[in-house]
Deep mutational scan, measured.
Amino acid sequence: MAAGGDHGSPDSYRSPLASRYASPEMCFVFSDRYKFRTWRQLWLWLAEAEQTLGLPITDEQIQEMKSNLENIDFKMAAEEEKRLRHDVMAHVHTFGHCCPKAAGIIHLGATSCYVGDNTDLIILRNALDLLLPKLARVISRLADFAKERASLPTLGFTHFQPAQLTTVGKRCCLWIQDLCMDLQNLKRVRDDLRFRGVKGTTGTQASFLQLFEGDDHKVEQLDKMVTEKAGFKRAFIITGQTYTRKVDIEVLSVLASLGASVHKICTDIRLLANLKEMEEPFEKQQIGSSAMPYKRNPMRSERCCSLARHLMTLVMDPLQTASVQWFERTLDDSANRRICLAEAFLTADTILNTLQNISEGLVVYPKVIERRIRQELPFMATENIIMAMVKAGGSRQDCHEKIRVLSQQAASVVKQEGGDNDLIERIQVDAYFSPIHSQLDHLLDPSSFTGRASQQVQRFLEEEVYPLLKPYESVMKVKAELCL
Rank of each mutant, 00 (worst) to 15 (best):
G4K: 15
G5K: 15
G5S: 12
G8K: 15
F30V: 12
Y34P: 00
K35S: 06
T38W: 04
A47L: 04
A47N: 05
E50N: 05
T52Q: 14
L53S: 08
G54F: 08
D59M: 09
E60N: 12
L69K: 10
E70V: 11
M76A: 12
A77G: 14
E81N: 00
H86K: 00
H86A: 01
G96E: 11
C99T: 13
K101V: 12
A103G: 11
G109V: 00
T111K: 01
T111M: 04
D117N: 00
N118G: 09
A127T: 06
A127G: 12
A127K: 01
D129A: 12
L131W: 00
L131Y: 08
K147A: 13
A150R: 12
T154F: 07
G156M: 01
Q161L: 02
G169K: 03
C173G: 09
C173Q: 04
W175E: 06
W175T: 03
D178I: 01
C180E: 06
L183C: 10
V189K: 12
R194W: 08
F195I: 10
R196C: 13
S207L: 02
V219I: 09
L222V: 13
D223P: 01
F236E: 05
I238F: 02
I238T: 07
T239M: 05
G240T: 11
K246R: 06
V251A: 15
S261Y: 02
D268I: 00
L271P: 01
L271T: 06
K276I: 05
E277S: 04
G288M: 02
S289H: 01
S290F: 02
M292T: 02
N297C: 00
C304L: 15
C304M: 15
R309Q: 04
R309I: 04
L311Y: 01
S323E: 04
E328W: 01
E328Q: 02
A335N: 02
R337E: 00
R338Q: 03
I339W: 01
E343K: 10
T347S: 14
N357V: 09
N357T: 13
I358T: 14
V363Q: 06
P366R: 09
V368P: 03
R374H: 07
A381Q: 12
V390A: 10
C399T: 15
H400W: 01
E401Y: 08
K402V: 06
Q409G: 10
Q409I: 06
K415N: 05
I424E: 13
I424C: 15
Y432F: 15
Y432M: 08
I436G: 04
H442L: 13
H442G: 13
L444P: 00
D445G: 08
D445P: 04
S447I: 14
T450G: 04
Q455W: 07
Q458F: 12
S474R: 15
